[in-house]
Each structure stands twice: as C-alpha cells, then as structure tokens.
Design a protein around this nucleic acid. Sequence first.
DNA 1: CGAAGTGTTGACTAAACTCAAGTACTGTGG
DNA 2: CCACAGTACTTGAGTTTAGTCAACACTTCG
Lengths: 261, 261
Amino acid sequence: MNQPLSVSQSQNNVNQTIIASTLNSRARDANLTVVPKTTCPDCRLSDLCLARELDAAGLSDVGKFVRNSKRLRKGQHLFRQDDEFHSIYFIRSGFAKSYINNSGGDEVAVSFFFPGEMIGLDGLHDGRHTASIVALEDTHICELPYKALSKVMASSPGVRERFNALLSRQIVQEQAMTMLRGQKSASDQLKAFLLNLSERYARIRLSPISFRLPMTRKDIAGCLNLTIETVSRLFSQFQEQNLVEVSGREITLTDLQRFNS
Amino acid sequence: MNQPLSVSQSQNNVNQTIIASTLNSRARDANLTVVPKTTCPDCRLSDLCLARELDAAGLSDVGKFVRNSKRLRKGQHLFRQDDEFHSIYFIRSGFAKSYINNSGGDEVAVSFFFPGEMIGLDGLHDGRHTASIVALEDTHICELPYKALSKVMASSPGVRERFNALLSRQIVQEQAMTMLRGQKSASDQLKAFLLNLSERYARIRLSPISFRLPMTRKDIAGCLNLTIETVSRLFSQFQEQNLVEVSGREITLTDLQRFNS
DNA sequence: CGAAGTGTTGACTAAACTCAAGTACTGTGG
DNA sequence: CCACAGTACTTGAGTTTAGTCAACACTTCG
C-alpha cells in the first residue's frame, strides 16, 4: 500500500489540471493557468514546501527524492493513529482532515489540511502518529521519506532552516486553531473558523471571499466541538443577517468587514 | 532587560534546592536529593532539554552556551506576543503560562509550562512570538540563543535530531491540549486537564496523585474555555463524589481508576 | 429508483453562563 | 504579629445558550 511511485515528468503532466478542477470552480482565475508539467521546480506550491531548498541543495533531480503523486480517493486514509512514522507529506491538491479518537472511541479533535500544507510531523516525537489522516476528496500527496530528508539536512543549512520553519509554522497553525476554538460563543467560533479557511484559500491564491467548504457540517462541528444542528442553524442565521451566502458547500463571505469585527 | 547572565558554577549552586522547594512539598521525595551544583551535566532535567546532546557535540563548556538562571518573579513576562524571536527557553524550575489576546483584547488561549518544557518555538516561523509567556510563580529559565544553536546543529546530528524531536513533542503536546478541550462536557474536560497535569508531574518525577495546582481557577477556566464559577463547582462536585480532595491549590486524585474512565 | 448520507428546522431540555453575595486566602505596611 | 486591602475562591438563583430528539428535504450514488 505504500510502494514508491516513479516520478518521471511524463507521468505527472495532469497534476496542475487536477488542482484547478478540484478546487472551487468560481475561483479558477488567471493565477491558475494550467502548466502541463509539474515536477517540483514547476509546482505552483513549491514555495510552501521543501522543494526549493532541496533543489538549491544541489539534488540533481528532486523528483528522485520527493515521491510525488501519491493519490488518495475520498475517504481513504494516508495513515492512522499509532501507525509507524517514516515520512512527512505535503498536499499537492485536494483536502484532508486529521482526527484523534479518545480512549472511549469518540472523535474528539479534528483539523484540516490545505494544498501546500505539511502532514505527519506528529510522528517524529516517538515514531508513531498521534492522529489519523483521511482525504476529504480525491487528493494528491507528495511524500518525503524522513531518513533521506534527515541526510540532506546534514549538509544543507537551507533545507534545515526551512524544515524548522515549517515545524514552527505547524505550531503556529495549531495555536490559531486553539484560538478560534477559544471564542466564547458558537457564533464567534464559526466566524473565526470561516475566516481561517478564507486566509488559507488566499495563501494558495484562490478567492478568500467565495469558496467551497471541503468538509461536511459534521466535520466543522467536530472541529469546533459543536453539534451539526448548531452549525447548520448558525449558517442560516449568518445568511439572514446578510453576512454570507450559503448554498450547500459553496459559501460567499458577502460582508468581510462586518464578519471580521 | 535581556542581558546575558554569566554562568560560572559557583553562581548556580542553589538551583536544585529551588526546584525542590518550589514544587509541591508533599512530593519532595527520594528522587529529589539536593545536588549542590547544577551545571547542565548535573541538571536533573537535562534529559528533557538539549543539554546532553550539546555536551556530546563536544562543547567544552555547555554553560558558556546555555544561559541558565534567567530568573522571573511571579507575574513577570519572559516575552510578549509580537516580540522578536531570538532564543528558545527551557524551564528549570517553577511554572509559566502562555496566553494569546484576540483582536478584541480578550485572553482566548492559555497553556501551561512545566519544568523541563520548552518555550518559544512559535517565534521561529516568522521571527515574532505569537503568544505571551508569564511566570506563575518564581521561575528559573535556561536560554539558548537560536543563532548559536543553529550553528551547533550544522555540525551535530545528535543536537539536530534532538531539536526536531522536541519540536515534534511540542506539536504532540498541543494536540493533547486540543484533545482535552474537545471533551463534550465541562466535567470531562476538567478531568482530562487534571490527568494531563498528573502526567506532567510524573515526568519530572513528582507525585502524579497529590500535587499543587500552579495556576488559578481563572487560568484553568481560560484554558478550558469555561468560567471560574463552573470550574469551582466542578471541583466541589468531584470532592462530593470522592474523586479528589481539594484544598485551595492542593489536590489529591484519590481514585485515579474511576477518574480515568 | 431506493438507500444512505447530508443538511435544515422545530420544540423541548440540559448545561453552562451571568449576576450577586459572601468567605477565604495573600501579601503589605504599621 | 496583626490589621487591612485586594485577590482568589465558593455558592446560590435565574437566564441564556447550545444540545437532544425528531421530522423532513435534498444529494449522491449504486
């Protein structure tokens, strides 16, 4: 289930198209012109991962190092809680969520991963992953075997610095989630949640105003420690207040000013 | 306010005593025999920080590298949100909390730091700290300037690996906090919170059953997104159910079995 | 087409919050 | 050492919020 995929350029010439079609159709704009080949140097998201630094480190072909194009169908797991750690991953296209089951078996914590975001560092600490990762839709993932990465870091300060910065970014992202969950009312929590999604869409140069929610109401509720009914009612309420327009998973933040305050 | 402290051994011969007296008096047991000198190689907590690896990396005197004995009085800040990042820190004795203010100025997220735990990595990402750190009581802190550390990591795989593991531990610790905040009832949240403290006391070889809460009810409430009244009522309720004995900040988990389930 | 999953809405209930009063610590100056 | 002030903590009564249970509509998919 984990065999390395060969990554000659010819095999990957559809990835960019996949990014464009997977994401919110409304936001398919000038920034998303389709580039036929997506080796690391070409990847639209390479400034978000380690590819540039690996390239600068003089790896003749980064493609030999990064196993890209691991593909997950909707609902498939990348790994599960307690699985052995051996790689870190970057989402190339699609979306994933993480979740943790407590001792009683309930899903108690959930967070989401966007294109360009890193997954798997929780396993570095003691060699086992503390959360499970599942694809919310068809998702392409790049895999960096940690042992090999570690070897490169020995000689490349650039890769090392970048890796540390990514680890720190992860900590900051976790803090941001903690912050939005810390809002006192469910309404403020959901607003903060939507603004967080908005920012992350902006980072991958998609519309921060009008986008598709990659997750179900249940996932949102799980993330914010609310019930699906409450989330649903809040969406309806925001719509009545002309703060947003919602239609299923499609959402438009019509009054970002008022939404933010 | 941030001048490096000189760290000759003679200046530090009281640290171990401070650890013993600062922590819960009931737990001052055989593991806490007082060692007069506490350079890094002697420090009871050195297996929790980077000292051993720095030592193994051949630094003739780790003391020249680690600026230990930075001292904070109760209520003093180590750094504040948006301050520039230049060092990472380890708590040698005492306790600290972090907090973040949202745009409205409310304290929305709080977490706590025990002896041996690392502080400050949130700043690595973009050079500024995202949270403020304040001492909950008189606290001793070791400081590792990041630039110097980075230089050592270039040549020492041991330090590098250890540093990455510590970063990962931080992520796992954040996940653990997220998990306990994700419990559905306030009661379960507080139980999980107390168990988390218990585990952390165990890690520094103090009693996981009977200990002193380093933080106020307000801090606990802030951490769990509850009100002080709710926290107070829950403590009373646990006591009625003979789950714990509470007297102010002193707490004993009388029935760990039943508490855990 | 039917089934399963996803989302909305309503009526009622339970949990936690707010406001308020009072008690118990903690630390400081006399 | 005590008195005092300020903070921390507890407890109660009433209110608000979000949860529960239930019915139903809409989608997706085999």
